[in-house]
Amino acid sequence: MVKRLPYTLMVFQKIESVYNPEDGSWSGGSEEWVNVSKCRDEGNGGGRSIMTEDSEVYVFNAVIYLPKNCPKVAMGEKIKVIDAEGNTRIEGNNKLHKKEQLHSRLWL
């Protein structure tokens, strides 16, 4: 049986450390990959392009299809798609994220 969304979208989150002026200490920051949603990716073999939110024309590497209820991924966020065995299929920075009528799409 073919799965509609067989892969996992991961977003790299970096939390900056915070300075506490009362005692002069820093609370630790963190860096980690966070599981955001199930997904399916499709490479751009035809050299198609998109117009980003700042009106820049961009030839994308891949489009990632997500469920409609997927949380918004900010422009420039570092993302990767992981298969069932834990292998990275594609990695890059988000260029555009659109919520459509039946699904969401994200371009790398």
Rank of each mutant, 00 (worst) to 15 (best):
A84C: 06
P71D: 08
R40A: 05
P6T: 14
G45I: 08
M10S: 06
K72P: 08
G76V: 05
C70W: 02
E31Y: 06
K98G: 00
E16P: 00
Y19E: 08
R4Y: 14
G86D: 04
W107Q: 02
Y58M: 06
T88H: 05
W33G: 12
E22L: 01
G76R: 07
T52E: 03
I64F: 01
P71V: 07
P67K: 02
L66P: 00
K38P: 03
R89H: 05
K38H: 12
K14V: 07
N20V: 12
R40I: 05
S37M: 08
V18T: 13
G43P: 15
E42N: 13
H97D: 07
N61P: 07
A84R: 14
N93Y: 12
S30K: 07
S25I: 11
I50G: 11
E32G: 11
R105Q: 10
G28E: 07
M51V: 15
N87D: 13
Q13S: 09
G46C: 09
G86F: 12
D83V: 02
V2R: 06
V36P: 01
M51S: 11
A74Y: 11
K3Y: 15
H97G: 02
E85G: 00
I64N: 00
P71K: 11
G46R: 06
S30Q: 09
I82T: 09
G92Y: 03
K80V: 05
E31K: 11
H103M: 03
L102I: 12
E32D: 14
A84L: 04
S27E: 15
E56R: 08
L96F: 02
R4C: 12
E85W: 02
S25N: 04
K99N: 12
I50N: 14
T52Q: 05
C70R: 06
D41L: 10
G47A: 06
S27H: 11
G92R: 01
E85F: 06
Y58A: 10
C39G: 04
K14R: 13
Y19S: 05
I64H: 00
L108C: 09
S27I: 00
K98L: 09
E16Q: 12
K14P: 01
W26L: 05
P67D: 03
E53N: 11
L66Y: 02
G43M: 06
M75N: 15
A74P: 01
N20G: 00
K72Q: 09
S104A: 06
M51Q: 14
K80N: 02
N35Q: 15
C70H: 01
K99A: 10
R40H: 00
